[in-house]
Design a protein around this nucleic acid. Structure first.
Lengths: 337, 337
DNA sequence: CTGAAAGCGCTTACAG
DNA sequence: CTGAAAGCGCTTACAG
């Protein structure tokens, strides 16, 4: 980096003090119109670019949000990133996005880097294995507000924005019941994630509502890898009376279910209905789609998460943050074909 | 932000100077082992976290790269982001990723923000419409090195990393010729992009090599929207003798071509072979895939771009950067099914 | 091996 | 309406 033009350079050129130049450029009311114009003219001609690094240091504020997500290859998270960036841009904030790649250690490292860089706030979708919340607790202790989204932590003392998962699960089930299904399996996400539990509860509630007995062999926990889904499918299809429909934790699992059927039970691929969370753009290209998706509105979740973060950043005293906020974004049933 | 522990706090606790504490923590050889241990002990107990914002300011270096890409929803770019992050992490650098959303004005804004924040270097895949390079020229003038990737600028005085596009195009064509096609159409990208031209040249060269006359009505310029691809398809299929294969600028176009055929020419969907750039992960779920993909190794491109950037950042004098470097990453043909 | 001092570029409370 | 001064937390050349 070459040395750029500084306030001092402009000040000495115009025989003014640095303070006056600073105030003139920031539009301070105390500065005369004439002075402001002289300063702005030179600043423009000399192509003055303020050194934000110096401001950050002086103001003890970086105007930067940290955003931690598991994986950018999952478009669900990219939509949320877009929501966060939208709000941040409006507030003249920068966003640094980091991927944890579902790795706890890496997640901790990222938090550490964000503290060192003194971000003003953090938004995070935790990894599927995160159970120790101490690194996030540390952020809050230091005075950096944190908002969780999509994957809410078990501890309710944190702020979070999530989909209305129970309602979404019930919508999915309602859709399947309406299509006449009674034998509905559920592929739940890792039990370590609270979202998995909540979606499972929605499944159970829907069964109860329709007076269908819960069948334990219809419930499978998967870890998002095709292998685990294939294994679950294989044990399901071996049952005397296999399910006629499957409600999945998310539609990437649905895709693997459909792949499995295409390979091993091609006769069933058009009879077994699959519904899961996540309305992915790529569905438009598929011949065999999930029957429906529960759209979580991840863009909206990003927006809400950022708003919640800004509102807690604007609170003066940390005491006010004691009342944690939980925002639920409604889900929408999207029927395909 | 609460005030954190500073070097001064540690220094006064231990009755040392701030300089000694600073040097102890950075492992300076001049500091005695005993002192280092005492300092590290307190730093650990008090949970000292260095203020990077202060270092950035002091050192006039932010240890941060700016990465500008058109769109994170395109997984091609996400893979490149991962490559850049890999190298950056190794060099202990942060990366701030910003999306231009293919919008020139937004791209200029991002460059401006990156200058203000004094990033140490910038990697960019320009929008499909970028023709005015002055904002990037400005970066370089200020002393911030820039590396372009994927979409290389026309002006050869810039550093860039691109796929070996001509070779990739020829590989695609070679594959189609081997399958017996002679009537091969080309859907080229926006003429404003140099990559479009180069891939087109590969197409022409391959035709020449196989002594096939270029048929002007087989060449269509599209803008990546389904509408423009549909329009091109419709005029193609009206020809007396339509093509038996299509080489596309990229495989998102191929997907739209296949969608078009499924809708309007279902008989041809299995006879017309489509090949394009970009090996997308989602292909595994498709029943009707492109016949093959040209894999651009975008992850590798990200790696190479970051390496090139670091090497120019390490050059002392800007004069040394006058010799711009162009790196070509080989493409690979991937046959589907 | 340790420390005093300067300084990075900015903002702001205060004095005039 | 303008300016002098302090200070944000760190690093580093220099002196001892």
């Amino acid at each position: 980096m070459k040395k750029g033009i500084t306030l001092k350079d402009i000040a000495s050129k115009l025989n003014m003090s640095i303070s006056t130049v600073s105030k003139a450029l920031s539009g301070d009311v105390s500065i005369s119109k004439a002075t402001k114009e002289r300063v702005q003219k030179i600043a423009g001609e000399w192509n003055y670019i303020p050194n934000e690094a110096a401001r950050h240091f002086k103001l003890n504020k970086t105007f930067t949000l940290g955003l931690i997500i598991p994986d950018l290859l999952d478009q669900f998270f990219v939509l949320a990133v877009n929501g966060v960036e939208e709000v941040a841009a409006f507030e003249k904030y920068n966003v640094i996005v980091s991927q944890s790649h579902e790795d706890i250690e890496h997640e901790n490292q990222i938090v550490d880097i964000m503290i060192r860089n003194r971000v003003d706030g953090v938004i995070v979708a935790i990894t599927k294995n995160t159970d120790d919340m101490s690194s996030f607790r540390k952020l809050i202790d230091i005075g950096i507000p944190v908002v969780f989204f999509a994957r809410s932590p078990l501890d309710p003392s944190f702020n979070y924005v999530s989909a209305n998962n129970e309602d979404g699960a019930m919508k999915a089930m309602e859709f399947l019941f309406k299509k006449g299904h009674k034998q509905i399996a559920h592929f739940m996400g890792p039990a370590s994630m609270s979202v998995s539990q909540i979606r499972y509860e929605g499944y159970v509630k829907a069964l109860e509502k329709h007076h269908v007995r819960l069948n334990a062999s219809f419930i499978k926990e998967v870890d998002f890898t095709p292998a685990s889904t294939y294994k679950a499918m294989s044990s399901l299809m071996k049952l005397k009376s296999p399910p006629t429909a499957i409600f999945t934790f998310k539609n990437y699992i649905s895709l693997d279910v459909i792949q499995y059927l295409k390979k091993y039970n091609p006769a069933e691929v058009n009879t077994i209905d699959v519904v899961g969370f996540g309305n992915l753009p790529l569905f438009q290209y598929l011949d065999h789609k999930p029957a429906a998706s529960i759209d979580e509105n991840s863009y909206t979740m990003g927006i809400e998460a950022a708003r919640l973060l800004f509102s807690s950043m604007k609170l003066e005293t940390p005491e006010q943050t004691i009342n944690s906020q939980h925002i639920k974004v409604p889900c929408k049933l999207v029927i395909h074909q």
